[in-house]
Structure formats: C-alpha cells, structure tokens
C-alpha cells in the first residue's frame, strides 16, 4: 500500500509531478527515500501497464477493416483548400480557364516527391496570381534526409518545381525560395532486411 503520510516530507502530488518532469533535476531527498522510491516505482509500473494496455487496444483497432478510413476520407473536401483561381489564357473571349492554387500546390508537392531524399511541406505563392503576368515568388518549406548535401538537393528541387510550374501554369515566376526546415531520419521498415552489397 502506498502511503501518502510517509513520503520523506513530500506529498504524493510532488512525486507525481517529479515523475512527469522525468525526475529531473534529480532531487536527492526523493531519490534517497525508500518510501518515495516505492511510490515512484508504483507510478512507473502503472504507466508501463497502461502502455501495454494501450498498445494492445491500438493494435486491435489497427487490425480492423479499413472501411472507417475511407468513410472519413469521403467526408473531407478539397473545396476548403482551393485558394485563388490562377488564369490560363485562351484565344476565345468567352473562355475563362483557370487552375486553382490548391491544385498548383499539389503539383509542387508531386514535383518535389520526384527528387529523392527531400520532402516538400507547405507551399506559398506570393503575389497576385489572379493577374496574368504579375510577378510571383514561390516559397516552399522542405525537409531533407539527414546527411544529404542540402545545397545540391535544393537546386534539384528548384529545377523540378520550375519545370512543373511551366508545364501547368502561365505564372511569371520570379523566384523560388526554398527553406529547409528540418532534417529527417531515413525510415527503415522493421521487417525489411537489406541484402545488397
């Protein structure tokens, strides 16, 4: 039984808080008290039992059939992310052709995904994209695989983005600014064994 009365002058609340601070900075009056240690170990055990329970439950949930995922995806719409209409020219005076800003962000991401080891995050089109010929600056956030040479990857990415924008839009792109926000670790699926070399 964990008693709150014999905790070397500490309250149970203090110990709980101490645990949540990852026991730092170390408090000798807590670490040196057997009663406190018993209480802390109990809380730690509680946490690990709870983690086991969670893992089991979450595992069971991930094994369920997939219908709930598709039903969620059916209820979300691209409309909310369409953004501005970017005009596309046509010789007919009654034609009003456009591509949405959301679609353009989509092709920027796709173009980025064609360059290995760099991932495109958020994209912004600065300038009046609704005005044909208006100067536009594209701002892109990217994440790079740890250990890669950033400048070289950024150049490759910039080329890919320019090409995609030329293909799909008539935007007068003055510059593409790429900000490397972060580095990421390569992901290795646990079951995958590397057999080359």
């Amino acid at each position: 039984m964990t008693s709150s009365d014999a905790l070397a002058g500490h309250t149970f609340e203090e110990l709980s808080d101490y645990l949540d601070r990852d026991r730092t900075p170390a408090d000798p009056s807590i670490e040196g008290s057997p009663e406190c240690q018993t209480a802390l170990n109990g809380m730690q055990r509680l946490r690990s039992v709870h983690r086991d329970l969670l893992l089991k439950d979450a595992q069971r949930e991930s094994e369920r059939e997939d219908s709930w995922v598709s039903s969620i995806l059916q209820h979300i719409s691209l409309e909310a992310r369409a953004g501005r209409d970017i005009p596309i020219s046509h010789s007919s005076p009654t034609a009003r052709l456009s591509v949405t800003e959301g679609a353009v962000r989509g092709i920027l991401r796709a173009a980025g995904d064609s360059v290995p080891n760099i991932i495109v995050g958020r994209c912004h089109l600065d300038g009046d994209v609704t005005e044909p010929g208006a100067p536009i600056t594209v701002r892109v956030d990217a994440t790079v695989l740890e250990g890669e040479i950033i400048a070289s990857l950024a150049d490759q990415l910039r080329e890919a983005l320019y090409a995609a924008l030329r293909q799909h839009t008539e935007l007068a792109v003055e510059a593409i600014d790429i900000t490397i926000r972060d580095l990421y670790q390569p992901f290795v699926p646990p079951a995958k064994a590397s057999s080359d070399e």
Partner: peptide, 13 residues
C-alpha cells in the same frame, strides 16, 4: 449564344 465557358482545374494528380 455563349456568355462564358469557365473551366477550373481543381486537382492535378
């Protein structure tokens, strides 16, 4: 008679 034909590309995949 046509006043306008508007074509919007909402997604490119």
């Amino acid at each position: 008679d046509v006043a306008e034909i508007a074509v919007s590309v909402a997604r490119i995949d």
